[in-house]
Amino acid sequence: MNPVPYDKDFAQKLLFDMLRIRRMEEKCAELYGAQKIRGFLHLYIGEEACAAGALHALAPEDNIVATYREHGHALLRGVTMNAIMAEMFGKQSGCSRGRGGSMHLFDAATRFYGGNAIVGGGLPLAAGFGLADKLQKRQAVTAVFFGEGAMAEGAFHESMNLAALWRLPVLFCCENNLYAMGTALARSEAQTDLCAKAASYAVPTLKTDGMDVVAVHEAAKLAVAHVRDGLGPFFLELQTYRFRAHSMFDPELYRDKTEVEEWKTRGPLHTFSARLKAEGKLTEEEFLALDARANAEVQAAVDFAEAAEWEPAEDLLRDVVTPA
């Protein structure tokens, strides 16, 4: 394996961000058991390298459109863990005022546009952001995240065609975790080569190891540069794996435990920290310090969410339409 091409600070930053997602979501699972978080909760555990590698390739003026498995993307985009946790608690200091919950994290300040819980629903939106940026001559990139399951939706095909036809600045980031809820790729798609599907729209594609934050970041930098240069959309396939169930209701009858265990050996956190240690870019003490910082941030977020106010029920009808 090639050496990690980053200095110690940036390498540790990537590791720390993945740790923040992991520790936050482990706590979310626990809080779900304690019934502090309700509704649907879709954990990203195992896939952290995708968000960390891709989001660090984007700029503040870029737009992010994500799915219902978006806690990590929101966090790394700059939504505070406090606001995310409060949202999952349903509190009014949540990033969507408690009206959205786990699946609908939004944040105008960081151009984070959800939090879209209809599979494929964010894709046409991303084409529209690209159109707005292109027509207003802005250099921004819109990165849209979706799973391989979304590639069976018409929304994927329509959006790819629009983006390619109009040369829109959209980065399509497919997080291929092999299962659309419980349906394996080969059981739902005749063409399982996702890049081949995307390439049929005359869009350049790149397949990369989504368990390796370096591979993701390098691929994302290349893809973002292409899009930002006005060369049109780009399709990135990040091959990854979800270690936890699809949602908290999923008994996981559709995959073998041995398969999960095999993928865990490629876990993005331990493989990357081992690599950094081997290269002298991380000591065990430093790792423990990073982990402690992540855990402290999580605990502070939980405390914040616990203490946060419930929105008064009299406010129920606000934010349906813009007040006159």
Partner: peptide, 21 residues
Amino acid sequence: DAPLSELGFVGAGIGAALGGL
């Protein structure tokens, strides 16, 4: 002129509206 993609171009209209148009 949009292709025959009602879902796609209505959604793109939403995105474009959010993007300032």
